[in-house]
Design a binder for these strands. Structure first.
Lengths: 195, 195
DNA sequence: CGGATCGTTGATCAACTTCAACGGTCGTGG
DNA sequence: CCACGACCGTTGAAGTTGATCAACGATCCG
């Protein structure tokens, strides 16, 4: 958990007192997942927010033809959840699973809302998360309606190189909203031009 | 402002006390815009959050060729801002202007953060806004990478009919990420099939 | 070693864009 | 108040982009 307190201090500029550590200790539960193991399956209700402390995961939907569409990637220090299902208590349309062996810290809905009022640092952390999430979402939406497939890929290489290194190409393609073949050809073009 | 207190109570289930009304009264400033008037221009820093009390607005970027790309529409009871610019204090890449004559309630960054700690209802309102925003963003991203142009349009007709009625077709097209001609043809198809 | 998965490549096909032209409507200035 | 210009939606034709289908080699893992 020490790395977690460090994480909180880093994002909130608030040190965590030892009483607060006690409270956090009880609210967050560690969990381990093997590669390919589900954290959430379509139809489940998402009961937890999960902070990745080690590993790599993805959130995706599956269409009628079996095609997968990646909504979100996550690695160390990213939070994973189906926000819609978590907040509304509705069955999820998404799957979340581990792409690498993964370690998490999980917190349930009630504890999450309680801690936000009890611990100032958690309030700030939440606001910070929401802020970053809002900014990132706006960027991705803008990219989706504005950029071509190639531009979206190059943009991702710049802003999210870690994802490109740790996830296979077909998942990257499904995140960009293009077919794996198209991504393969785009990379070839870009490489021939000299990256 | 009475409608605003009503708005807060509706979304937070917290009535606003008369002392709180005083505080809110000083923090929020009414503003009127004529049709086509800018609220924010590219390069400006977005200093306010604006709640639309009457009218219709849009947020959009302009590319090198002069093409417009609509990121967000807003009508009564929607908040408008470039969240990235507002939170980070960075120059905006977007324009926001009025499509109809519009009335707003505006609040600045410092007041916004102060009220979130001083007034419980504002804390709840903020959390609710962020929650809704997160859910809506996830949906739109998923639609963008999953659905065809026609499916995105039909989805928008279902979930946002007010926008389709109040904004012209070329703006709807730029919101969906397709050309105005394509949208025209899609509508013709859908109409011939019987809506 | 054998099967599954992944990335690549080619050929064909579908979706969407672009360019151009036209008619209708609306707002504005003379 | 009318006439003109600007803008909008529509339609057609041609051009691009990306999807699909199929085949193949490489790699990884059991």
């Amino acid at each position: 958990m020490n790395r977690f307190y460090e994480y909180i201090r880093h994002y909130t500029a608030h040190p965590v007192t030892s009483q607060e550590q006690d409270v956090l200790q009880h609210a967050f539960r560690p969990k381990k997942l093997r590669k390919r193991q589900y954290l959430l399956q379509e139809g489940d209700i998402c009961r937890h927010l999960s902070l990745i402390t080690k590993g790599a995961m993805r959130q995706y939907s599956v269409d009628e033809k079996g095609g997968e569409h990646t909504v979100q990637f996550g690695i160390e220090n990213w939070w994973m959840s189906d926000r819609e299902s978590f907040e509304l208590g509705s069955p999820s349309k998404y799957n979340i699973d581990a792409w690498e062996d993964t370690e998490l810290l999980q917190i349930g809905y009630d504890d999450w809302w309680r801690l936000r009022s009890e611990i100032p640092a958690m309030r700030i952390l939440t606001a910070e998360m929401d802020k970053r999430h809002a900014v990132a979402s706006q960027k991705r939406i803008h990219a989706a309606i504005t950029l071509t497939a190639e531009e979206r890929y190059l943009e991702m290489m710049k802003s999210q190189p870690a994802f490109i290194q740790r996830f296979p190409q077909n998942m990257i393609a499904s995140y960009l909203g293009i077919s794996p073949e198209t991504l393969s050809r785009i990379r070839k073009q870009a490489f021939l031009r000299g990256d």
